[in-house]
Nucleic acid binder design. Structure first.
Length: 258
DNA sequence: ATGTCAACCGACGGTTGA
């Protein structure tokens, strides 16, 4: 079995102990982190090394930042999403090759800040991600693209009144871009196994969202066709949200046959 | 918009982004 977990950690330095405890307990083969909110030299790599994990870190100061923790060696493929040209300084994508597959960890732009330009950046990023998926299909690669997509694909993916109608996470253009990605031939791993359940992966810190279960499902794992056939289970680690000083997101684990 | 949180800058409090 291969276990791949994605987790928007909202500052890896604040939550290093949570990550270490998770690695010890769940022992994923790969842990994809988003919003590490630090530069590579500030990443607490030694703490994870002590648990047997190496890390590929794509960091930047203050915001964003992704990392990919792995037990066995990996081949680095990309530290930027192809198609996002040099003007894109934001650290939002990491891709490696391991276990005969490409593993992409991503932090898709939220799109609610920066006005219309901020939203256009989100859509541009989504189209570039679709192009990346098409390129991987062109190579006949097996691949998984997992992370914080900042998209609620349907109205079943957020609690009633959790979002205003014009929020960038649910705007029609956002959903169209997400479905254009999925329709290249990918499988939303969680919905493949749990088609109807209200399963959320994020609860805002504000307004008692956790206590009211006013959550969103925005952390997703998309699988290429042969990997979808190997899908065994998807787990939303909801209990992480109830811990002290939690991230506002919880981990989502995908298990594939070996 | 918020019953919030984290990082930065510039000196403990406002700003930004989520």
């Amino acid at each position: 079995m291969i276990k791949i977990t994605t987790w928007n950690i909202n500052s890896v330095r604040v939550r290093e102990a949570h990550v270490s405890a998770f690695l010890e307990r769940e022992a994923p083969d790969f842990l994809l982190l988003q919003e590490i909110k630090c530069e590579a030299h500030q990443f607490p790599g030694m703490d994870f090394k002590a648990l047997g994990y190496d890390a590929v870190v794509v960091g930047q100061k203050s915001y964003n930042g992704v990392a990919l923790l792995h037990k066995a060696p990996v081949e680095l493929v990309h530290k930027r999403l192809p198609g996002m040209t040099g003007d894109d300084a934001q650290a939002r994508y990491v891709e490696v090759r391991a276990n005969g597959m490409n593993i992409g960890g991503l932090y898709l732009p939220n799109g609610n800040s920066g006005g219309e330009a901020g939203y256009e950046y989100k859509l541009h990023w989504m189209h570039a991600l679709r192009d990346r998926a098409l390129a991987l299909f062109e190579d006949d690669a097996d691949f998984i693209l997992a992370g914080d997509y900042n998209v609620c694909p349907t109205d079943a993916d957020f609690a009633p009144r959790a979002l205003p109608a014009n929020d960038a996470l649910i705007r029609p253009e956002t959903r169209a871009a997400f479905h254009a990605l999925v329709h290249t031939g990918l499988t939303d791993a969680l919905r493949a196994l749990h088609p109807r359940e209200a399963l959320y992966t994020f609860w805002d810190y504000q307004a008692g969202a956790w206590d009211r279960n006013s959550g969103l499902r925005i952390d997703h794992a998309l699988l290429s066709p042969r990997l979808a056939e190997r899908l065994v289970s998807v787990t939303v680690h909801r209990d992480e949200r109830a811990k002290t000083q939690p991230s506002d997101h919880v981990p989502v684990s995908v298990v594939l046959t070996a």
